[in-house]
Design a protein around this nucleic acid. Sequence first.
DNA 1: AATTATTATCGTAATTATACGATAATATCA
DNA 2: TGATATTATCGTATAATTACGATAATAATT
Lengths: 111, 111
Amino acid sequence: MASAKTEEFTQKEQHLAAFAKALSHPARIAILKILAQQNACICGKIVEVLPLAQSTVSQHLKELKNAGLIDGTVDGPKSCYCINWKAFAKFNAEFNSLFSSLKMQNEKACC
Amino acid sequence: MASAKTEEFTQKEQHLAAFAKALSHPARIAILKILAQQNACICGKIVEVLPLAQSTVSQHLKELKNAGLIDGTVDGPKSCYCINWKAFAKFNAEFNSLFSSLKMQNEKACC
DNA sequence: AATTATTATCGTAATTATACGATAATATCA
DNA sequence: TGATATTATCGTATAATTACGATAATAATT
C-alpha cells in the first residue's frame, strides 16, 4: 500500500512534495545545472556529461518535465530542453513561504 | 539497480537531493507544520492528526530525523520531536543558492 | 511487581523509483 | 528512397518507499 494516502493531505502539501520529489535525486539537480549553464538548450549533451545511460537520462528528463520544472520541444531528431523559470520561481517561493510560516509560529528551543 | 549511481555526483548535489527527499512526501511536510504549530514538541499528537497509522508516522519521523530536519529526545515513555531550525535554515539557504546560481547563468527563453 | 501508556521496531505486502539494454520512432542527410 | 543520428519508449531486474498490524521496548503509575 505504498503512497496511497496522499490524497488525505492538502493540495499545497502535495504540490510542494511533488516539487521536492523532482529535486530528490542528484542526477536531476545536475541536469538542471547543465541546462542553466548551456546557453542553448542542450539535449544529448547531458548524456555525455552524466554517468548514466541514455535511457536513464531520458527518464529523469521526463520526470522533471512532468513536475513542470523544465520544458521540452522537439528540434529535428534532437530534443531541446530548458528550465521553466516561472515554475521554478514558484517552487522557490512556495518553499520559502513554508519555511517562513513555520518559523513565524515558533522558533524556541525545545525538549 | 535502483539508486546506485548516486556516488558519481557531487557532495552538494547529493546533500540537496537528500534534503529534498525528506520533503518529498506530504505527510512529512504536514509533520513539520504540526511541530512548528505546537509550542511543546508534540509526539503522539501527530498520530491523532494525520490519517496514518502510528507505525507509519514513526517511520516518517525517523526519516526527517535522519535527514537532520528534526531532533528527537526521549521524555519518559513519550518521544519529543522538534524542528532543527539550524538545519532547516541551511537547507533553505542551499536551495536558494541553487536557484540563484542557476538563474545567474541564463534566464533567456529557449527552444 | 504488575499494569498501563507511549513509541519504536519487525515482518510483510504493494507500489514506486532507478537503471540498463534493446528497440522503436523521428527527422535529417546522402 | 535509404542510411544515419538522436531520442523516446519498452521490457526487465533490483532496490527503495510506503503502509499496516503485531510485537517489543521504555518508563511512569498503581
